[in-house]
């Protein structure tokens, strides 16, 4: 364990990594829980990330409640991140599956095209064209599904943001 390089008897420390674009908002959110920025440095390899060290007085009013609210706040942030990550995951998966199946079945039908029989040739061409057109025909379904996903994401993110605002409001009331 590295030696503590701050006054650990009188202060608590929190170190986070955040994206530069949202950093001001993140800092103002954490300040509601009593944290103040001590140190900030850019990530060595990624220009869009900052490493932030924050300090808070060790003995503050309503500390237990603030600690609990902070955990809830971070949990909602994680949910928001996950909602964003998996926003269009299902539709992407379906699109990839349909396209892959179309290509696979088309390849399976290729021997029919090179067959000596005309009927089989015609069958082969029609099957291949059907399979290759399938993704295009399923586009409206895909768009509908996507819209549903976006709506679900908007609902979840709206809910998370509302909860986060509620938590920050509560925390503000405790630190004032």
């Amino acid at each position: 364990m590295k030696k503590q390089d701050y006054d650990f008897n009188n202060f608590d420390r929190l170190t986070i990594i955040a994206k530069k674009a949202v950093y001001p908002e993140v800092l103002s959110s954490y300040s509601v829980f009593g944290w103040k920025e001590k140190n900030k440095k850019d990530d060595v390899s990624r220009g869009d990330i900052v490493h932030v060290e924050m300090l808070r007085e060790h003995k503050i009013k309503n500390k237990d409640e603030l600690q609990y609210l902070q955990v809830c706040f971070e949990s909602e942030l994680d949910k928001l991140s996950d909602a964003h990550t998996y926003k269009n995951a299902k539709s992407k998966a379906i699109a990839i599956t349909v396209s892959s199946c179309a290509v696979l079945f088309s390849l399976l039908c290729l021997p029919l095209i090179f067959s000596a029989t005309t009927v089989l040739n015609i069958l082969g061409y029609s099957l291949i064209s059907t399979f290759l057109l399938a993704p295009i025909f399923s586009l409206p379904l895909f768009i509908k599904f996507r819209k549903k996903e976006n709506k679900k994401f908007n609902d979840i993110s709206g809910k998370c943001i509302k909860i986060i605002e509620g938590i920050l409001q509560k925390a503000k009331g405790l630190t004032e």
């Binding site: 929190l14 994206k19 993140v26 990330i49 991140s81």
Partner: peptide, 12 residues
């Protein structure tokens, strides 16, 4: 990966 996170707490 941090790629998808808004904030990550550093824990040793």
């Amino acid at each position: 990966s941090f790629e998808n996170k808004i904030v990550k707490i550093k824990t040793e």
